[in-house]
Amino acid sequence: MSLQTYQRAQVAMVLDRDVAHRISGGDLGPWQADLTPLERERLVSQATDAGLALSRKLHKGWRLTKLLTLLPITFRVGDPGLLSDLVDAYWRDHLPQGLYFEAEAAGFAAFVAGQVPASTALHDAARLEGALLAVGQRGPSAPSGPIELRLAHDPRRLLSAVGGEALPPPTSDDGYDIAVSAGPSGPRLAVISRA
């Protein structure tokens, strides 16, 4: 399975600059034993090739564009520097698994919500967009029913940042209780009555 190992190492260099740096010094880590001498030579040479760094940039740009597109409110209300750090941290532990990024964006939204204070607009934006994405998912990871959220920030103001139309009214003085569910033409928001 030498070709498989070669491609795994090449992909790892595209995804991670640190891996490329190690390989450029001849450290092929867990792949070393499975590779032919020619494959090792090729990988070491590619590790310092400026074109590999370009490929990494193209890959990250492609992946980041998907997050920006799928989480517009989160990236609108959050501090760019903080979000850049959070993206890097999330990607360190999560590989790009497909051409469809709804699941990754929902996972990143949950990650953001877990990393920032609950009192911030970024926290609520990430939770709200995570829920909107989750109810739109298909397959075994799709939630079976509505997702209920209590937000500290008015969801109407969050959604207005991206021109949202389905705006629930405020529900109480100390928070906003909403349910996010799948509708025939996309996710729906509804106010939860606590009466």
């Binding site: 491609q7 795994r8 090449q10 992909v11 790892a12 595209v14 995804l15 490929s55 193209l58 890959h59 492609w62 992946r63 590989l95 790009p96 698994q97 497909g98 051409l99």
Partner: peptide, 13 residues
């Protein structure tokens, strides 16, 4: 793939 996890880099390597 890595540890049975599929990876798609979105590039034509």
């Amino acid at each position: 793939s890595e540890d049975d996890t599929g990876i798609n880099v979105g590039l034509t390597l």
